[in-house]
Computed example of a mutant assay.
Amino acid sequence: MPVSLSPYALRQQIRQGSFTGNTSGYCAGYVQGNLAILPKAFADEFLMFCQLNPKPCPIIGMSANPGEFMLPDLGQDIDIRRDIPRYRIYEDGKLTSEVTDVVEYWQDDMVAFLLGCSFSFEEALIADGLEIRNITEQVNVPMYRTNIACKSAGRFSGTTVVSMRPMKPADAIRAIQICSRFPSVHGAPLHFGDPAAIGISDINHPDFGDAVTINEGEVPVFWACGVTPQVAIESARPPICITHSPGHMLVTDLPNSRLAIL
């Protein structure tokens, strides 16, 4: 299991380049976020896309003004250009590189969006005695493109990306009950059972992340995933966009308890 670190301590390791891995299982109790950074000319349409698709794109924070890269509302000394383990750079909608900081790509008109992440509800599932296979196997959670259409907003459109965790059917029902309390981090699963029903042809070959073991008697359980905006960005084709690399999140100082409906 990952070692116990405070969010601030982990972000310092990330900023110094000594931590570049995926963040699942780290900093128990604290909110993790997916990232999308866009020029101001695309930001309003992207905000509308998120508002129309709250399951895959729940906003937990954003830049107060274009060009601001410090996010004090999310934690101590957060510099969104340097405090995520790995970033993806898109140019005209195409992935062109992965980097460990984006200082050289930052522009004065950029707006950063942080979206809720399923890693936040994994803690609640574990606390209830449910196994999270990607944490047990110490790999990135498997993620898949689906045929579930998103609502379009201006230039942004696409289909939903889902993350998957295998469970016994009774545990899947319990997971639905637990995750319904966390609408700000994707909420209840979208689907469990037959992957083909949501357009997934091969469960053993995820589009993002790593495959995990599915044991006899288990079913795949699928949650809306914050990688969905990366698919929408492919369609919108902004001249530049910065996202997190799947599984490599911003770990904030916000407690997960703040997101739960009690």
Rank of each mutant, 00 (worst) to 15 (best):
V3C: 01
S4Q: 11
S4H: 11
L5P: 00
P7M: 10
S18Y: 00
N22I: 10
S24W: 05
G25W: 04
Y26L: 13
A28D: 09
Y30S: 07
V31G: 01
N34V: 03
L35H: 07
A36P: 00
L38Y: 01
P39E: 02
P39W: 01
K40N: 04
K40A: 15
D44P: 00
F46S: 06
L47F: 11
C50E: 02
Q51I: 08
K55T: 08
I59M: 15
I59L: 15
I60N: 03
I60L: 15
M62S: 05
S63T: 12
N65Q: 14
N65D: 03
G67C: 09
F69C: 10
L74C: 04
D79Q: 09
D79T: 03
R81P: 01
R86F: 01
E91L: 06
D92F: 14
G93I: 07
K94G: 02
T96N: 06
T96M: 13
S97N: 14
V99G: 06
T100Y: 14
D101E: 13
D101T: 09
V102L: 04
E104Q: 13
Y105Q: 13
Y105L: 07
D109S: 12
M110E: 02
M110V: 04
M110Q: 04
M110W: 06
A112N: 03
A112P: 01
G116T: 04
E123P: 00
L125R: 04
A127D: 15
G129S: 11
I132M: 13
R133N: 02
N134V: 09
I135A: 01
I135Q: 13
V139K: 14
N140H: 02
M143V: 06
M143A: 10
I148C: 04
A149P: 00
A153T: 09
F156Y: 13
S157M: 09
G158K: 08
G158V: 12
V161A: 04
V161W: 02
M164N: 05
M167I: 08
K168Y: 09
K168M: 12
D171A: 15
I173A: 15
I176W: 13
S180H: 12
S180W: 03
S180V: 00
F182H: 03
H186E: 10
H186I: 05
G187C: 08
G187W: 10
A188Q: 12
A188G: 06
G193Q: 09
G193T: 10
D194G: 10
D194C: 13
A197R: 12
I200G: 04
H205W: 01
F208N: 00
F208G: 03
A211G: 09
V212P: 00
V212R: 02
T213E: 14
G217I: 05
P220C: 14
W223E: 04
C225L: 10
P238S: 07
I240K: 12
T243P: 08
P246S: 08
G247R: 05
L254R: 05
P255H: 07
P255A: 06
L259F: 13
L259V: 03
A260S: 06
L262S: 07
